[in-house]
């Protein structure tokens, strides 16, 4: 009986943790989905998340207010995303190169500012974190209630964001406009759509959601900041976008899959199986690579992905 109880507990916590692990990936993936569907490939997603994580932590640490932390998380992501947009739309710099550069820039900037502010300390500075919100009645459902309805506000927002994104992309003219700009910007231009403005808008969405994804790490999962706290989550989010075929729910499920692998590896580490911990840390990445192998040749990228649009002079 006790054993069955602990197995159940294991599964409940595993599922609940999978969802939490999936949140930052989904948020960043949704932002990137908007960006890529409009034809802008922003490899700097890692930098966006890292910047979001750092600025949200700093704001929350200084003001001790989580809401302000969230806002600054969005702004931090926006900062990186806007540099990317500006460089690639205004000066037509190769989008991939700018993205790579921004990842390093963000890593250097956040590490430097963090060190400059706190110096070398032995105590880890802490910021307040969000508390789980029990949804009345629903959270009383056995198992499901614990997994789905006893989560923090970010989790609920993520699901909400998926629905909204789905409606925008698939049910409104805006979605069609975004797709047309990612597929054939010149055609969009000749019917009077503003290619640059639309791409700036998707870049803003990308920056805010990516920054929010980063903020989740500090304001919900950890409560502290350290150098390179995202440790590749932005890159995994890029993969999640491809796995999810740039569909909001596809992104959500892909993120849950990778999130489950991550949640599982933490638990496996604590089981004392006698393997080096690095083996388990590898798990989410191995899962990513394997799933990616199965999706080869099915992605169907937007035709103008990564190509900055220039109305030619001749």
């Amino acid at each position: 009986m006790a054993e069955a109880g602990s197995a159940l507990y294991f599964i409940i916590t595993l599922f609940a943790a999978s969802i939490r692990m999936a949140v930052p990936l989904t948020l960043a993936g949704l932002g990137e989905t908007f960006s890529e569907r409009s034809g802008v490939l922003n490899i700097g997603l890692e930098g966006i998340m890292l910047s979001g994580a750092f600025f949200s932590f700093m704001a929350a640490f200084i003001t001790q207010n989580i809401l302000i932390g969230v806002i600054f998380g969005c702004l931090g992501g926006l900062l990186i995303s806007m540099i990317h947009a500006f460089m690639s739309f205004k000066y037509y710099v190769n989008q991939t190169i700018v993205g790579i550069a921004l990842n390093f820039f963000s890593l250097g900037l956040t590490s430097f500012l963090f060190l400059a502010y706190f110096g070398r300390t032995t105590t880890v500075p802490q910021c307040p974190v969000v508390k789980p919100i029990k949804i009345p009645l629903l959270s009383d459902i056995p198992i499901v209630g614990d997994v789905l309805f006893n989560q923090d506000i970010f989790v609920y927002f993520t699901v909400f964001a998926c629905f909204v994104s789905y409606i925008i992309l698939y049910k409104t003219v805006w979605g069609t406009n975004i797709d047309s700009i990612g597929e054939h910007p010149k055609a969009a231009d000749t019917v009077g759509l503003n290619v640059k403005r639309t791409r700036y808008i998707t870049a803003i969405i990308n920056g805010c959601l990516g920054g929010l994804g980063g903020a989740y790490l500090t304001l919900a999962m950890l409560g502290f900041f350290m150098e390179n706290i995202t440790s590749g989550k932005g890159f995994i989010a890029l993969v999640v976008v491809i796995l999810g075929r740039r569909h909001p729910f596809g992104v959500l499920f892909a993120a849950l899959l990778v999130g489950a692998a991550e949640a599982l590896q933490y638990r496996l580490q604590t089981l004392g199986l006698g393997l080096p911990s690095q083996v388990f840390i590898m798990l989410p990445y191995v899962v990513t690579v394997i799933v990616l192998l199965f999706s080869i040749g099915k992605s169907g990228d937007p035709a103008a992905l990564g190509i900055s649009y220039k109305r030619s002079s001749r």
Partner: peptide, 18 residues
Amino acid sequence: MLVPTLSVAQNITLGLKN
């Protein structure tokens, strides 16, 4: 100037505010 991944109707109304 047609977007190959969209439908005929979507292309015809592209950019319009109906």
